[in-house]
Structures are given as C-alpha cells and as structure tokens.
C-alpha cells in the first residue's frame, strides 16, 4: 500500500560508528503516512541503533533523518519527541513509582500538540490500549502485557506522527500476541505511521506492508513484505550462507 504522497519519515545515508565498528552504515528508507514498515535483521545488525539514531538517543556521524520536511538528525531527544516521534523500548520501561494515569500524563504534559487537542485524555488513552479503569492503579502492579500496553499508551499520548516500536511484541504468549497484533493494526487503521523492529514472523506477515532488512549495519533489502521474505540475500543473512546452513 505505497502512498504517492511525500513520506512522513525519510532516512538517508545514516551512519554511526562505535570505535572501529560501523553499527549503522549508510542506511536509507522511508515510511509513508498510514503504513507499517518492518525493520528486520539478525541480532546485532544495528536495528536498535537505528531506532536510537532516529529518536535522538545517539547522534549520527553522517546522514539525514527527515520528519515531514524537517531534518532532525542530531537533535536532542526531547525536541524530537515534541515534534512527534514516539517510541517504546526493547526492554519495557514504565514509571514504576507512579500510577498508570501519571504514566500517560507524562506523555501528555510536555507536548504542545497533545495539550491543545482536547479530545486526548488520560482515560481515553488508557481505554485505547485496553487499560480502562486503571487510572489510579500503581504501574508496578501490572502484568507483563499490561506494562507493554501502558508503555504504548504513553507513546500515543505524544500524538506521534511516527511511532517506533522496538520489539513490542517480544515475550508475549500466543493469545497475548493475537491481542497485540490486533491492537497495532487498529492504530494503523486510524492512520498512524509505524516503524517496527520485530522478530515475530507471524506479526510481520500480518502487519507490515513493507520491510527493510539490515545486516551488519547495512540495508540488504527493501520492498513488499512477501518479496523481501523470499529474497535469498535475506534468508542467507538470517540463516547463514547455504553451505553452512
């Protein structure tokens, strides 16, 4: 479902080195309005580093990250967040010393765009991810999947134009996985653009219209999900060269 309009997020020539290791090497891809793009690759291929570069946790050595028509590469994280890039973390992070409501309020309170939109409310966001009536509940009491839901609600509170999900579905059991996939699909149906790092193949197949595959910091494939998953280079990156497999 490629949109012909200008992309929401465009990454070009993104590069980051750690000492001698080039963790992300000349990466480029785009995310268009209302699509879910999967960012795939074996462990250590640089996916989380790419997410960290886009969200400003790390500074790129080279390259552009264009959100709408603004180049945000190298901006501080809080400015990028205010501009509409929200994320979740590979290891779920909620504010354990606060209530669920305050967790969501954390996402609302420091963001102009979120604050002037009167239709966004804490209770509404909690209900949106399936945590209705949890407003005054301490976040530390939540189960694993509910913590994931709360983290997502906090990200949605930013009214993001792009949502970055870093293995949000990892660690869920099969029935929770179905709930999680349905939840992400409903976000997409509302028009949200999503870039997701994911290993769960069922989720990738059912959610992502397009996939970008990384290996050793480089992009090795980019295209419709079915095509990419059949690409010999991708299979080799995941399973090793045929003679070793």
């Amino acid at each position: 479902m490629m949109s012909s309009s200008a992309p929401i997020l465009k990454v070009e020539g993104l590069t980051r080195r750690f000492g001698g290791l080039v963790a992300v090497n000349d990466m480029g891809f785009t995310v268009h309005a209302g699509e879910i793009v999967g960012l795939l690759g074996p462990n250590g291929s640089g996916k989380t580093t790419a997410i960290n570069l886009i969200s400003g946790v790390l500074q790129p050595d080279a390259g552009r990250v264009v959100l709408g028509d603004t180049d945000i590469a190298g901006w501080p994280t809080f400015k990028i967040a205010r501009l509409g890039v929200a994320r979740t973390f590979q290891l779920v992070r909620v504010l354990d010393g606060m209530t669920c409501g305050d967790n969501v309020r954390a996402g609302l309170a420091f963001n102009q765009r979120a604050r002037i939109e009167s239709d966004v409310s804490v209770d509404g966001l909690l209900a949106r991810v399936g945590l209705a009536d949890h407003n005054s509940r301490p976040a530390s009491e939540l189960t694993y999947i509910d913590r994931k839901r709360l983290e997502l609600a906090r990200a949605l509170a930013l009214r993001p134009s792009v949502l970055l999900l870093d293995e949000w579905l990892a660690g869920l059991n099969p029935s929770e996985l179905q709930i999680g996939i349905a939840l992400i699909r409903s976000l997409k149906d509302e028009g949200l653009s999503i870039l997701m790092v994911e290993h769960v193949m069922a989720a990738i197949r059912s959610l992502c219209s397009r996939c970008v595959v990384m290996s050793s910091g480089r992009r090795i494939a980019d295209g419709p999900t079915d095509t990419v998953l059949r690409d010999p280079a991708v299979i080799e990156a995941y399973l090793g060269a045929p003679e070793h497999a």
């Binding site: 967040a81 504010l95 906090r154 930013l158």
Partner: peptide, 11 residues
C-alpha cells in the same frame, strides 16, 4: 523515575 523515558516524553 527514569531519565530516558523523561527525554522521550519531550522533557
């Protein structure tokens, strides 16, 4: 509570 989360909330 969590400085990283704070930054990602726009603080």
């Amino acid at each position: 509570e969590d400085e990283t989360v704070a930054r990602h909330c726009g603080i």
